[in-house]
Structure formats: structure tokens, C-alpha cells
Simulated scan of single mutants.
Amino acid sequence: MKLSDVQPQEYSQNNVRYLEKLPQDAELIKSFKDDFSAVLELYQSMPSDKLDYRYAEGKWSLKEVFQHIIDTERIFIYRCFRIARHDKTPLSGFDQDDYIWPSQADKKSLEALMEEFKAVRESSIVLLNSLNDANLKFIGIVNGNPLSARAAAFNIIGHNKWHIDIIMERYL
């Protein structure tokens, strides 16, 4: 399955900025594997003194950004799962800022964050491999808007690319 298979009626304007980060020929599972390597390589290459850096007052540290990437994948893969299982219950949105402080990301080691990311990503790939194309096309309602299971999955990768670009531009 490629991003080009995802139709505009399968997602809302909230998802466009992330989906536009991906090439139209992006393949779902390959994108998850490639993104996994890219995120790990980026964080492994960072000097340890940069991990607590914030580019402005009130902005997240690089550890907090990493935790946000992990948390967002958990939320979107859960949405993907529920929608792919044809659960018609509308799903709520979430406020990303509410998740940062309780995560205590700045107190975690880089190794702990990488271990958490690996576990979440491996679980996401196993789930995606278990879903067929028909179920991935199913559309649910998230935060009052339509979202297909496959658009939710691709959103994870686009969201990560969004944050990698910000890291490269403002943190490094």
C-alpha cells in the first residue's frame, strides 16, 4: 500500500501538513522501517549536552520531542487499530502539551527513550502487517473528522518527518 492510494476523503485538514511530508509513492511498511532508522540515527548522533536543549522559552527539549514522537505513535496506531477493526465509536482528539510534563522525558536517559521507541515501533509494524487492505481503508471519526486506518498510519510517519525537520532547523 502506498500513500497515493489514500484518498482526500480519508483524512481532514488536520492531517494534511503531515501527509504532505511524504512522497506519494511511500509504501506503508517500508516507510515505518525507514523512519525507524532515521529517528534512531538522528538521536544517536546528537551530543548528550544537546538532549536537554530548548530553542526558546516554553519549547520542548529534544528528549521531550522524542517522547512526543513516541506518544503520538501510540495514539495514532491505536486509532488505526480501532478504525481497522471497524469500531464506529468516534474517537477524541488529544492535547499534546498535556502529555509532556507527566512523561518526565527529561529525567529519562536517551537509551530508555530509544528502547521505548523500538518497542512501540515494533508493535506498530506487527499490527500493520496483520491488517488487510480492506480494513486499512475503513474510515472512522477522530476529533469530529473522518480518518481511515491507513491515513492514521501514514500520519505517524509524516508527523515524525515534521519533527525531524524542526529539529534540524531549530535545535541542531
Rank of each mutant, 00 (worst) to 15 (best):
Y55N: 11
M114I: 14
D35M: 15
E115S: 15
H86K: 14
G58T: 08
H68V: 09
D98F: 06
R85V: 03
A38W: 01
A112D: 12
K118R: 13
D106M: 11
Q44D: 13
E115H: 13
K118E: 13
R82V: 10
I83C: 06
P102H: 05
L51W: 02
F32C: 09
Y55M: 09
D71W: 06
Y55W: 09
Q67F: 11
D52L: 15
D52A: 15
V65K: 00
D25I: 05
Q104W: 01
Q67E: 07
F36E: 07
E115I: 11
S123T: 13
I29F: 02
H86T: 02
D106I: 07
Y78S: 09
D49R: 10
A56F: 01
R74W: 01
F66L: 15
V65A: 01
K59E: 06
F81D: 04
L51C: 07
A112S: 12
F36T: 02
F76Q: 02
L91Y: 01
D35W: 02
I75S: 02
H68A: 09
R54N: 04
D35N: 14
S37W: 04
D49H: 14
L51K: 03
M114D: 01
A84L: 02
E122G: 14
D98I: 04
S123W: 01
S92R: 05
E122F: 10
C80V: 05
A38L: 12
Q24F: 00
D52I: 12
S37A: 15
E115A: 15
F76I: 04
F32V: 08
R85F: 03
V120R: 00
K118Q: 14
F36I: 00
D49M: 09
A26F: 10
R82I: 08
E57Y: 07
Q44A: 10
S31M: 12
R121P: 02
E116S: 13
S37G: 03
D95M: 05
L40K: 13
F81Q: 09
L28Y: 05
D25M: 05
P90W: 07
R79N: 09
E115M: 13
S92W: 01
K107A: 12
A105T: 07
S123L: 10
F36M: 03
